[in-house]
Design a protein around this nucleic acid. Sequence first.
DNA 1: CTGAAAGCGCTTACAG
DNA 2: CTGAAAGCGCTTACAG
Lengths: 346, 346
Amino acid sequence: MSQRTTIVDVASAAGVAISSASAALNGQPGVSNATRERIHRIAEELEYVPSQRGRSLASKRAFTIGFVVQRAPEVMSADPFFGAFIAGVQKAITDSGYVMVFQISPSWELSERLYRRFAAARQVDGVLVDQLHVNDERIGLVKELGLPAVVIAPDTVDVPLPLTGQSAVPGVTALVNHLVDLGHRDIAHVAGRLDYVHSAERRNTWAAAVSARGLQPGVQIEADFTVASGKQAAERLMRLDRLPTAVVCVNDLCAIGLMAGLQAGGVDVPGKISVTGFDGIDLSSHVHPSLTTVKAMPEAVGETAAAMLLELIADPGRAPWTVPIAPGPLVIGASTAPPRSVVTDS
Amino acid sequence: MSQRTTIVDVASAAGVAISSASAALNGQPGVSNATRERIHRIAEELEYVPSQRGRSLASKRAFTIGFVVQRAPEVMSADPFFGAFIAGVQKAITDSGYVMVFQISPSWELSERLYRRFAAARQVDGVLVDQLHVNDERIGLVKELGLPAVVIAPDTVDVPLPLTGQSAVPGVTALVNHLVDLGHRDIAHVAGRLDYVHSAERRNTWAAAVSARGLQPGVQIEADFTVASGKQAAERLMRLDRLPTAVVCVNDLCAIGLMAGLQAGGVDVPGKISVTGFDGIDLSSHVHPSLTTVKAMPEAVGETAAAMLLELIADPGRAPWTVPIAPGPLVIGASTAPPRSVVTDS
DNA sequence: CTGAAAGCGCTTACAG
DNA sequence: CTGAAAGCGCTTACAG
């Protein structure tokens, strides 16, 4: 392997000082067009690619952003969010020469260590904070560390940091209205862990939307986003004196588990109970019955979050701002239908 | 934000030269125990964490490994492999101060650009090459770039690079034997894209294992690992003159789609057809019927691959070696049963 | 507009 | 065992 070409090679080949080469290559003012072009041409000829190491040290930037996903690896696997989210992040950062370091952390304790190391070793220029908890310790931590950070959460949340994400309010409201319009009067909810901001938002929206139609919110069961927890929710539901006629689930995976549990217990979906999900994952259109759900747009969220982080890194003093992502569309599947009584009545 | 403490601060506080501080902190010989301890103590007091930027430039290492996943983001989402695989990678590298840069690339063209940039910008010290294709261009590319690389593939594959992974031979053979023992004589296969090494291995193993039991391999249908493709496979299967009594699928997701498609077409599983998967993802135990499958161990593969890459980076001249990962266990679910004729016969 | 110099924070030969 | 010096490949004031 021959020596890599450095900016010194480019400068000497162009007959200029390395400071001129640097300025020209970085598109900075103070270089005549003639020499700028010559330097660019020579850099190309020599296949010059600046070393991130030299650049990092001199410019005090890592050209790297950090993303710590705080959840168990097994849960991550099931989550439909990450592929698309990360693809979106990449789309936003790649052209700036930035790169994303990705870590999984099952616990807050490990997350904290990872963030501290990121900051102390100057390994990243900023971080993405995902899956916000109620009273999330990470907010205080990134502030303490002076680490630029963008939070991903429903845009209804109030945090002292730049934020982007989708609100579930329009989606869950549409889901509830769809059910009420079908004739449902007893609409239950299978919630996610309520210490997560996004599941709390969905739960509250379910209750508010049901009330807004003049109905009493039905039973509420707490689950944890997984298929297994949806299945357990089905078992708890089937032990009730009276089944609700419809269930709004916090997400698709949970709804898929719920449907499987109900079907295993001999409860027909949607004949006996209608079920809705949230996320619009690929699988939701392939299960039987196909799921009525709301599409999330993780790629758009990832792209926006990363773009915001880059802006914040360029201007760290900037006051927090929020960029809402438009809510995704309602997808009506075969898992929702009029309740039996209504069908009989007609 | 106060100034970060640097090695200069540590050295001057300890009253030694920075070279001594460096040697002591990095556990290198040539420092007396007394001064070594003193330096360590002072570094701790000052909460010194070495800057990766300085370290990188001086030591000509990035302390970063690259992982480019070459597939569409949507497919990634569905893939159960990555969460656990990445968790395993982290486990292996975190203590060495290494970090993983993660990229998704839908095409070979983009992958090539990413690898070239990694190499040219000295952004990573090595890469993980996953999901090996038949005649994979990445093998030649990493060699050309002089980029240390570890390949993840079934350990039956022969490539001129260090390799780790699980062979599907024991698992698929066990699956086929299970079906034959139940009485099946017509065992079909839904394959993954056969230009992938791992799906080719599974296909070939299916054919060999069926033959080894003195039977003719049944129909073979090509799919692409997704639920949707499994569903399409079901439709093609149902158009055949005679249904096979059992189907070995390339992976769980595909098997889940196949079962959904069969059930939608009124074909009972396992009453009419037995179905097997591969991977042992969480979902496979929650679908109805629960899936007979073989567990994959992505975390072990990730950990081993990353550990190997670190070894290779430390000794780039090392001759390629292979570390096989023990195959995972057979999981017998409710999706396999004796064929109807056998049940009737008895 | 252009260039010489200092410096980012380390590691690594090399003298003593 | 210990220290002074050079150097990794850039960027960034600062003179000219």
